[in-house]
Design a protein around this nucleic acid. Structure first.
Length: 361
RNA sequence: UGGGGUGUAGCCAAGCGGUAAGGCCCGGGACUUUGACUCCCGUAUUCGCAGGUUCGAGCCCUGCCACCCCAG
């Protein structure tokens, strides 16, 4: 088979390419440069990553290319990312990036190269079912990335390959070392895909105008100033600058973004009831199989990446979901994705829209 | 310009003659392909200022300064 491997410059995709090559496939490494900017230190991290991709491909002995989807990334992912922040929500650009860029624009490109499949270094697995391809969690529970892939549909999944999904991170590094891949010890990347680790506040400031305002308690007492509601997210504690007030000395957390009055509402205490909710509405539901398993059903869910599985009941109303958790959830945040699972099978998910708070209100 | 009180790190705040607790904020790190959360580490040679007593003072004394309260 001819397989295009999306290579980031990291170990996971490098080992993916290596394994496919060893399995006898015709492998083509392709590097995506989707963000034009230097990082905080003035270096273009993409340059280093591209060099790593070339070095890895040379070691493996496969051809490589670079493609640029900067325009697509900006139009289909980043613009949405910004508009969500403008609405006071907290988006997850990476779930969109996977659907729109890696498994759409990039997938199309791979197909044009005559590829049969598109591989990436995601820690996730695929299983051919009777009629559909199922998306499963990666074997390494600590690195499972199925959360970020929940928006993928059959056309994409049927062409995808995840060579490292059955391995642990330790396995991957061991293979990379053994094969003497130059990125064997390269540090895992974090931060928004293609953009990387940033001083988030400073980063956003470069794109959206800030509107400072008051920080208030639930009782309405003004106890500080915020730099602009977009810089904060629900459940956040750092960056508030609220110190030493007479009282319990507990930390303060964001419990509400009052767009109308441009006020940030905060509460004291890690486990303030105002931070918890049991029911929420999520929209834009997508299903791996193409359809919801039932009008309502029980399953587990992750309200954010790396969260332990939460037992929930899901009620489906078109592309809207009403998700009822068994246990109260902390800081469920509009814009974030709830991803549903049945055991190791990822069912799909949706984006939190409205949160019904338990206490207060 | 009578009386009372208070002045300890950015903010709260312990300390009561024996050589500066703690919390919050903040900074750094860990964790992490979103944003967060969490965890770990760090942060006053110095206690409004100036003298004095004492082997030794943030703690006692004197003066000054600042702020607060009451009375004017």
């Amino acid at each position: 088979m001819r397989i295009v491997v999306g290579m980031s410059g990291g170990v996971d995709s490098a080992v993916s390419a290596l394994l496919l090559h060893r399995a006898g496939h015709e492998v083509i490494g392709v590097f995506m440069k989707n963000w034009e900017e230097t990082d905080d230190s003035g270096l273009c991290t993409a340059t280093q990553d591209w060099e790593d991709v070339r070095a890895v491909c040379d070691v493996i002995g496969i051809p490589y290319y670079a493609v640029n989807f900067t325009a697509e990334y900006r139009d289909r992912v980043f613009s949405h990312f910004l508009s969500e922040y403008e609405k006071g929500r907290t988006p997850n650009p990476d779930v969109l990036c996977n659907r729109e860029i890696k498994f759409k624009a990039f997938l199309d490109f791979a197909m044009q190269l005559g590829a049969d499949k598109l591989a990436t270094g995601h820690f996730a697995n695929l299983r051919e079912g009777a009629h559909v391809v199922e998306l499963l969690r990666g074997v390494d529970p600590n690195k499972d990335q199925s959360y970020f892939l929940y928006m993928l549909a059959q056309p994409a999944l049927s062409r995808a390959v995840f060579p490292v999904g059955g391995l642990t991170k330790a396995d991957v590094r061991a293979i990379a070392r053994e094969a003497k891949l130059p990125v064997a010890e390269k540090r895992d990347s974090t931060g928004v895909c293609f953009i990387g680790e940033r001083d988030f506040k400073a980063f956003l400031r470069g794109f959206l105008p800030a509107r400072p305002g008051d920080i208030v308690t639930m009782a309405g007492e003004v106890i500080g100033r915020h730099d602009g509601l977009m810089y904060y997210t629900l459940g956040q504690r750092r960056g508030l600058g609220i110190g030493g007030r007479p009282g319990s000395g507990e930390r303060w957390f964001v419990v509400e973004k009052d767009l109308e009055n441009n006020r940030l509402v905060v509460e004291q205490g890690q486990d303030s009831p105002r931070l918890y909710s049991t029911v929420c509405e999520a929209d834009g539901a997508t299903w791996i199989s193409g359809a919801a398993p039932a009008a309502s059903f029980d399953c587990t869910a992750k309200y954010r990446y790396r969260q332990a599985d939460q037992r929930v009941r899901v009620e489906v109303q078109g592309d809207k979901l009403r998700v009822i958790a068994h246990a109260p959830q902390r800081a469920v945040t509009p814009g974030q994705s709830i991803v549903l699972y049945d055991g190791d099978v990822c069912l799909g998910g949706a984006v939190v829209d409205v949160v019904e708070l338990n206490a207060g209100t």
